[in-house]
Amino acid sequence: MSSSQAKTHSSEAQQTTDHDVIRKWAEERGGNPATVKATEENGHAGILRIDFDPPDKGLDRISWDEFFEKFDEAGIAFLHQDRTNDGELSRFHKFVRA
């Protein structure tokens, strides 16, 4: 399912690989691109995460450029929910195989 097939502001999860959609979703919720510290290798990003305040001590925040380089290299997609069933902004997300 692409993000264009899902309802706008739906409580249903949507899947996308669109960098602009992912960045906008995260930034609207105060999220920052990050990587799991224990999985970084030779200065390269490891497992990707979106880090919300307060910062998670197990994560290193990285640039959006580095985040999307790893995202594309890994061939994954971003599964996310825009709103909860109550209409509130949702932070539900996860990375899945594309």
Rank of each mutant, 00 (worst) to 15 (best):
G46P: 01
I47L: 14
W25L: 01
A26E: 00
A74N: 08
F71K: 04
T17K: 14
H44V: 13
F78I: 13
Q81F: 02
I76A: 04
H80C: 04
E69C: 03
G30F: 11
A26G: 04
H80W: 11
G75L: 10
A38V: 06
I50T: 01
G87M: 09
R91E: 11
T39D: 09
I47K: 14
F67P: 00
Q81E: 04
Q5H: 14
E12R: 11
F52K: 04
S3H: 09
R83C: 12
S11F: 07
P54S: 06
R83T: 11
D72R: 13
N32R: 15
D86K: 12
P55C: 04
D20V: 11
A6D: 11
T16R: 13
M1N: 13
K57R: 11
T16H: 15
A6S: 10
H44Q: 12
K24N: 14
S63H: 06
K70Y: 01
A13G: 15
E88V: 03
A98G: 11
R61P: 02
H19E: 10
D56C: 10
I47M: 08
K24C: 11
R49I: 03
S10V: 03
I50D: 00
I50N: 00
F95L: 06
S3A: 09
Q81H: 03
T17G: 14
G58T: 06
H80E: 02
L89G: 06
K24D: 10
L48K: 01
S90E: 05
T35M: 02
G31M: 03
H93D: 02
D65R: 03
H9A: 13
N32S: 13
H19R: 15
T16F: 07
N42A: 15
I76W: 02
K7C: 15
T17I: 12
R49M: 05
F68S: 06
A34L: 02
K7H: 09
A38P: 03
S3L: 14
R49C: 06
D82M: 01
A13Q: 06
S4L: 13
F78Y: 12
E40S: 01
F52H: 10
V21N: 03
R49V: 07
Q15M: 11
F52E: 05
F78D: 07
T35H: 01
Q15T: 14
W64S: 01
R91G: 08
E27W: 10
A26V: 00
I62H: 01
N32F: 14
D60M: 02
S10A: 07
F78C: 08
F71G: 02
F71N: 02
P54T: 13
F71V: 03
